[in-house]
Write a protein that binds this DNA or RNA. Sequence first.
DNA 1: GTGCAACATTGCAGAGAATGCAAGAATATC
DNA 2: GATATTCTTGCATTCTCTGCAATGTTGCAC
Lengths: 213, 213
Amino acid sequence: MTFDHARAGLRERKRFATARAIEMAALNLVAAKGLDKVTVDEISRIADISPRTFFNYFASKESALVGETPEPPTADAVAAYVNASSGSVFDGLGALLAAAVEGRSNDTELMLKRRSLLKDYPQLFAMRMAAMREFEDRVREIVALRLAADDPALAADSGLLLSRSRLITNVAFAAMKHAWVCWADNEGGTSLGDRLKDSFDELGRILRPVPVV
Amino acid sequence: MTFDHARAGLRERKRFATARAIEMAALNLVAAKGLDKVTVDEISRIADISPRTFFNYFASKESALVGETPEPPTADAVAAYVNASSGSVFDGLGALLAAAVEGRSNDTELMLKRRSLLKDYPQLFAMRMAAMREFEDRVREIVALRLAADDPALAADSGLLLSRSRLITNVAFAAMKHAWVCWADNEGGTSLGDRLKDSFDELGRILRPVPVV
DNA sequence: GTGCAACATTGCAGAGAATGCAAGAATATC
DNA sequence: GATATTCTTGCATTCTCTGCAATGTTGCAC
């Protein structure tokens, strides 16, 4: 969700500014001193709030660093994917994830700082992935809808449908993880959305090797 | 590593017993009262050690719950996989992971308690997966060896080799995660190793759909 | 089996994380 | 402007985790 600075009231704007100040302070401090040399007290001092207020915004030091979770896809995007009659289950799934990941926060400065931080601290990256559990489960439901639409026999077997939708979602998130690492690796370059497309393409090439003609 | 009770010295046996007592106490308490109602103090009391000793064994309350990380595959298993001339890169990878996962701890009681706990607390399951980073990286190296052996052109392009080995490893771990969830879901039944084989088979079927004859 | 080295356990002190509560300040609403 | 809502803050408290130094156990050489 892009934050609408113009339309929001003072309270909302202040809240947004405070959250951003905390994230900035946290990211800068950790970049400068290392993750475990930074305390909530110090972050709060730089962000100019009380340590108690920090915990009104973030549940932990780490969650101030890893950023928000992606938004669930819009109903339109879901319908388009579920009813797509052409291509494999994976085609279109990349785009669906890309939209969700790019949707939030076009705050480039935070994004870049966060990218280099998650690169330096794989534990934080793992936390970020773990925080996506809800989102992942929503994606799994969508995949299940698509599978059921494609194959009535599968729709009838709820156990198999669950198992298969889980596996496909896991694989999709594996590709997403891959895309993220590649994106963080080549520091300048392409957008995360484009990188996601590349990873899904590469995945397709691995799984369906060029048929021998 | 199966612990060799007979051959080990007294010190080693005591250490093993203490670790097991801590794990047991932790698992039982959390099963009874819930994760955040249990403190290290309480675990230590039940395990009959001092709280300070707890932290000589485990870095955190959680790591006493999630169990050890898998052992890296043996050199023999690696060589067999890397030099296998038939099948796709994924064939054999399932077996490699199965061997690593089953290798450790045939302590059934702990294993079952842990299984139901990780099922109840997805955060713990996520921690367990995250803790496998080192193991995952070792697997990635092995996959890269195999890719290089299969395709000299790929061997020459280290960037592409890295990217592809990462993607394949991510997908393999996605299948492993899937296998684990299925295994935990059907409580009795098959071994984790068998379930892993099933997940890799299902993965193969999804990726290479039955050719229309 | 005595003595010494290596390792384990423990208590204590202390930093830091995180939460509940209640008072007071800022913002919203009418 | 009065009142309700929401935010911020300080304070007390519980819990996690670490370093250190003292003490206890085990392993090993002789």
